[in-house]
């Protein structure tokens, strides 16, 4: 388990060792630590949009005795799995541009709420709406509870969520909207999350459209 203090110490150490300015996006539970919405997280999740930065970050982690771990155990059968690095109880999930069914988009970068500078490591903390979106993409144990906590705590701008779902479809991630719909529906029905019905309705419409498109492509859809 990692708390904000451990995370800060690790980022500071990495920032001092990095020779070039390296920007990363902090997502998931790690981002929630900065918002004070969580006290500890199982792993530190970071995303890079530059291959060189991604490689340098991995190299530094190896230098400070992080060991490579097989991501299959955690992300079984999923696409765009992260590089998993572990040192004792600390685990870092490092994604490059894509987070399972989600693509790091320009609109998401534009919604960055906090930027922390640890020497050469610049940590951009994504907005609460984007944390929820990404939680629906990763769907690990605890992701539902985290999303629920964010919905309880923040006045979530639901139009951002639906717009980003459309955006992801345009970015060639058609299945994201299906996962998002199922994720939010479960949160509303099983956990009584305060999610407007119109949001679910519009996501359902988009999901159906995408599924029909997919079936037509595969030839499995008969009129």
């Amino acid at each position: 388990m990692v708390n904000l203090e451990n995370q800060q110490r690790l980022f500071e150490d990495i920032g001092k060792r990095l020779k070039k300015r390296t920007e990363c996006f902090v997502i998931g539970g790690s981002a929630m630590l900065y918002y004070g919405a969580k006290a500890v997280t199982k792993d530190i999740d970071v995303v890079f949009d530059d291959k060189e930065c991604f490689d340098n970050f991995l190299k530094i982690l190896k230098e400070i005795e992080f060991k490579v771990k097989d991501p299959e155990a955690l992300y079984f059968g999923k696409e765009n799995k992260p590089a998993l690095m572990e040192r004792g109880s600390e685990r870092v999930d490092i994604f490059y541009k894509e987070i399972i069914t989600f693509k790091l988009s320009e609109s998401m970068v534009g919604r960055i709420k906090m930027v922390y500078e640890y020497n050469n490591l610049i940590a951009n903390v994504v907005s609460p709406e984007d944390i929820i979106l990404l939680k629906s993409a990763t769907e690990r144990a605890g992701d539902r509870a985290d999303a629920l906590e964010l919905i309880k705590r923040f006045n979530v701008n639901w139009s951002i969520i639906t717009k980003e779902a459309i955006n992801q479809t345009e970015l060639d991630k058609p299945l994201f909207v299906v996962f998002l719909y199922e994720f939010l529906l479960e949160l509303k029905e099983d956990f009584k999350a305060d999610i407007p019905d119109e949001v679910l309705k519009s996501l359902l419409k988009m999901s159906e459209k995408e599924m029909v498109k997919r079936l037509k492509k595969k030839g499995g859809f008969v009129k």
Binding site: F11, E12, G15, K16, M114, V115, Y116, E117, Y118, N119
Partner: peptide, 9 residues
């Protein structure tokens, strides 16, 4: 546009 903080210096 966003909160910016500098750590370590």
């Amino acid at each position: 546009p966003y909160e910016h903080r500098v750590i370590g210096k």
